[in-house]
Simulated assay, not measured.
Amino acid sequence: MTLVGEHTRSAGATVGAAAELIGVTVRTLHHWDAIGLASPSGRTASGYRLYTDADLERLERVSAYRQAGLGLDAIAEVLGGDATDGIVATLHAQRARLASRMRELERLDANLERMSLAHERGILLSDEEQRELFGDAWDPASAEGARTRWGGSAQWAQFAERSSRRGRAEWRGLAEGLAALQDALAEAMTRGVAPGDAEADELAERHRELFSELFPISVSMQVCLARMFESDPGFAAHYDGIRPGLASWFRRVIDEAARRRGIDPESATWR
Score class of each variant (00 low, 15 high):
residue 3 L to Y: 00
residue 11 A to G: 14
residue 11 A to E: 13
residue 13 A to L: 10
residue 17 A to F: 00
residue 18 A to D: 10
residue 22 I to W: 00
residue 30 H to A: 07
residue 43 R to A: 12
residue 52 T to C: 04
residue 54 A to F: 02
residue 62 V to L: 00
residue 64 A to T: 14
residue 65 Y to S: 06
residue 67 Q to P: 00
residue 67 Q to G: 05
residue 71 G to S: 10
residue 72 L to Y: 04
residue 74 A to C: 02
residue 76 A to T: 07
residue 76 A to W: 02
residue 77 E to R: 15
residue 80 G to C: 00
residue 83 A to I: 00
residue 84 T to C: 03
residue 87 I to E: 12
residue 88 V to L: 14
residue 88 V to H: 07
residue 89 A to V: 11
residue 91 L to S: 08
residue 97 R to L: 15
residue 98 L to T: 12
residue 101 R to V: 05
residue 104 E to S: 12
residue 110 A to G: 11
residue 112 L to C: 09
residue 113 E to W: 12
residue 114 R to A: 15
residue 119 H to D: 02
residue 127 D to F: 05
residue 128 E to C: 02
residue 131 R to N: 04
residue 131 R to K: 14
residue 132 E to V: 00
residue 132 E to A: 05
residue 133 L to C: 09
residue 135 G to M: 01
residue 135 G to W: 06
residue 141 A to F: 01
residue 141 A to P: 01
residue 144 E to M: 06
residue 148 T to F: 11
residue 151 G to K: 10
residue 151 G to P: 14
residue 151 G to W: 12
residue 152 G to S: 05
residue 153 S to V: 04
residue 161 E to R: 11
residue 162 R to M: 09
residue 163 S to R: 06
residue 168 R to I: 07
residue 169 A to S: 14
residue 171 W to K: 05
residue 171 W to I: 03
residue 175 A to N: 08
residue 179 A to I: 03
residue 185 L to Y: 04
residue 188 A to N: 11
residue 190 T to P: 02
residue 195 P to N: 10
residue 195 P to I: 13
residue 199 E to D: 13
residue 201 D to N: 12
residue 203 L to Q: 11
residue 204 A to F: 06
residue 207 H to W: 14
residue 208 R to C: 12
residue 208 R to E: 07
residue 210 L to T: 06
residue 214 L to R: 10
residue 215 F to R: 10
residue 220 S to H: 09
residue 222 Q to H: 15
residue 222 Q to G: 01
residue 225 L to D: 03
residue 225 L to T: 04
residue 226 A to G: 04
residue 234 G to K: 03
residue 234 G to M: 08
residue 237 A to E: 11
residue 239 Y to S: 01
residue 241 G to S: 11
residue 243 R to W: 01
residue 246 L to Y: 08
residue 248 S to I: 13
residue 251 R to G: 09
residue 254 I to G: 02
residue 254 I to P: 00
residue 257 A to Q: 06
residue 260 R to L: 11
residue 263 I to Q: 07
residue 265 P to M: 06
residue 266 E to R: 15
residue 268 A to Q: 10
